[in-house]
Simulated scan of single mutants.
Amino acid sequence: MSDTIPDRLSATPGSPYYDEALLERGISVRFKGEERNNVEEYCISEGWVRMAVGKTLDRKGRPMTIKVSGPVEVWIKGTETSPDTEA
């Protein structure tokens, strides 16, 4: 499998942007300079993430989310190309 990061990725199985193999490898997301672990979906080119809001669930049992705009950095966990290695 290549180490190419998709422009858009979702953790929801019904989404057309869902990629199970990539999610199993592990994806790290830094949003506005802070590493986040509650990101449900992201889009690098449009500069937004969709994050879970607390422990609240919608009527289908999925986490309630909010879409927030800002700079997004994404990398595969365990690769040497992570933004942490720049400094």
Score class of each variant (00 low, 15 high):
Met1Pro: 09
Ser2Glu: 15
Ser2Trp: 09
Asp3Ile: 14
Asp3Trp: 09
Ile5Met: 08
Pro6Gln: 14
Arg8Lys: 15
Leu9His: 11
Ser10Leu: 06
Ser10Tyr: 10
Ser10Ala: 14
Thr12Gln: 10
Thr12Ala: 12
Pro13Ser: 11
Pro13Ala: 12
Gly14Glu: 15
Gly14Ile: 08
Pro16Trp: 06
Tyr17Glu: 12
Tyr17Ala: 10
Tyr18Asp: 03
Leu22Ala: 04
Leu23Thr: 12
Leu23Tyr: 09
Arg25Cys: 09
Gly26Leu: 06
Ile27Trp: 02
Ser28Cys: 15
Ser28Leu: 08
Val29Cys: 09
Val29Trp: 07
Arg30Tyr: 10
Phe31Tyr: 12
Lys32Leu: 09
Gly33Pro: 03
Gly33Phe: 11
Glu34Lys: 15
Glu34Ile: 15
Glu34Thr: 15
Glu35Cys: 11
Glu35Trp: 11
Arg36Gln: 14
Arg36Lys: 13
Arg36Glu: 11
Val39His: 08
Glu41His: 01
Tyr42Trp: 05
Ile44Phe: 00
Ile44Glu: 01
Ser45Trp: 01
Gly47Trp: 00
Val49Thr: 08
Met51Ala: 12
Met51Val: 15
Ala52Phe: 00
Gly54Trp: 02
Lys55Asn: 13
Thr56Pro: 00
Thr56Gln: 10
Arg59Trp: 06
Arg59His: 10
Arg62Gln: 13
Arg62Tyr: 12
Pro63Tyr: 05
Met64Ile: 12
Thr65Asn: 01
Lys67Cys: 04
Ser69Asn: 13
Gly70Lys: 02
Pro71His: 05
Pro71Leu: 02
Val72Glu: 05
Val72His: 01
Val72Lys: 03
Glu73Leu: 08
Glu73Met: 06
Val74Gly: 04
Trp75Gln: 01
Trp75Pro: 01
Trp75Val: 02
Ile76Trp: 07
Ile76Ser: 06
Lys77Pro: 00
Gly78Arg: 07
Gly78Ala: 10
Glu80Pro: 00
Thr81Leu: 15
Ser82Met: 03
Asp84Met: 04
Asp84Glu: 14
Asp84His: 13
Thr85Leu: 06
